[in-house]
Design a protein around this nucleic acid. Structure first.
Lengths: 235, 235
DNA sequence: AATGCCATGACCGCAGCCGCCATTCAGGCG
DNA sequence: CGCCTGAATGGCGGCTGCGGTCATGGCATT
């Protein structure tokens, strides 16, 4: 499955190069960081088309309207998506586009979660311009890039299982993701139905679909699975 | 409640000293580490009474029979207790005894979890003899000792809330802890009853008691609370 | 006698599974 | 072009069984 996804990249060349990246999308709610990144990219890579979005939902909508970019830079902590949710969601729309995670938090567990979810790389917000540019170029050439201090702790099998799990979560529809998020806050079906202004019966139906997709039987298992790949961070 | 527990320390001196530590208990399933620690302690502190236990349950039983030691050194990964469970359990029996966590894993989140659960300090297994002895002495004098690279990220309020939560978990009875552990694996009541060879009705009663103690209403909330202080690590 | 832990069965509401319908969108075809 | 169709998504109510509460009792320690 993994190999197939990688080979699905349009075969303009056996090995992608950074030159192919013409249009990029930055998703970050922090305006300054957004501008700084955009400027750096324009200068260092000569990019003209740098798009930005302030939230995950805005990014999704923009991709739907304006089409797919050639690369994405994604903040870990967005107003509507903390944790791996952002990657998983964008992976649905952009199966072949390299997604770079950017964050101030360099905790090992978070990095592995992001990589397992399908990120092309993970870089620190406090990186120097040169290092940033270099990391991005390497990612756009197909390399997986992680911060220095991070050792992959690749058990192989375990990591692959988490990637498979991330793929399952990626198959959830937006509404299903909303409901799962509330489940993972410990809410009851009735509360969820009120929050989303739908009938409790509908909530249950969605939950059944979620369970089926992620291969869980009890809702507690769903919570555990979501937490195991850090789908939603504390909030 | 908190103040009472702290003041319960025998008022032999306003400020405890390392000299008061005469008898110590090491809880570790790794025989070599156990022996190495015991030897080091005997030499460096002149201790004669070094007791050992290979599992959490063995430690609990030994304390019940032989009485309380003056200090405890506790491995993070025991066969019957991974994560903060060990601290929480021993804290029940030994509210006034300094418990030192020892582990190879230096992840920040795990350290804060252990400290919030009531550990006196946290030291690495790969520490030099001098550093080890020094850290232990400082802990036994009342100081809270954490590894070098670790910054407490004390939000104060948040950390205090977690400590309060750990105290609540400490009030669980052994059987309740067993049941909570299985709940946190995503098991259904019927499965739990089978695993523990009791009636499902009994399981439910225990769960109600657990919920009441940790202030949760749905079982998913219980799972989230347990995970938030890393009561049980993956297994 | 009193307290704390464990265990049980009966009761009730919610969780999870079923079948069914409305809307939307993409594509095939007269 | 209009129409049909099928797949995907969101939505609903009913049924069964599990999850959570209550009242009760046995057993050990104090």
């Amino acid at each position: 499955m993994t190999a197939a996804a990688i080979q699905a990249r349009p075969a303009t060349s056996a090995r992608p190069t950074a030159d192919q990246v013409r249009e990029i999308l930055i998703v970050d709610d922090h305006p300054l960081m957004c501008d700084a990144l955009a400027l750096t990219l324009k200068i260092s890579f000569g990019l003209k088309n740098v798009r930005t979005a302030r939230s995950l939902s805005a990014a999704v909508e923009q991709i739907r309207v304006q089409g797919a970019p050639d690369a994405v830079i994604l903040d870990l902590n967005l107003p509507d998506a903390r944790g791996a949710e952002g990657i998983v969601t964008l992976r649905r729309q952009l199966p072949d586009v390299p997604i770079t995670m950017i964050s101030a938090d360099l905790e090992g567990a978070m990095i592995s979660a992001a990589m397992a979810a399908g990120a092309q790389g993970y870089i620190s917000k406090s990186l120097s311009r040169e290092a940033l540019v270099d990391s991005l170029r390497r990612m756009w050439e197909g390399e997986h890039v992680t911060p220095e201090g991070y050792c992959p702790e690749e058990d192989g099998a375990e990591d692959q299982a988490r990637a498979e799990l991330a793929r399952r979560f990626a198959s959830l529809t937006p509404q299903q993701m909303n409901i799962l998020r509330l489940i993972c806050k410990g809410k009851a079906n009735k509360e969820i139905s009120y929050d989303l202004s739908i009938a409790e019966a509908t909530v249950k139906t969605h939950i059944t679909a979620i369970m089926s997709k992620i291969n869980a039987r009890r809702r507690t298992q769903a919570v555990l699975l979501a937490n195991s790949i850090r789908l939603f961070e504390a909030g």
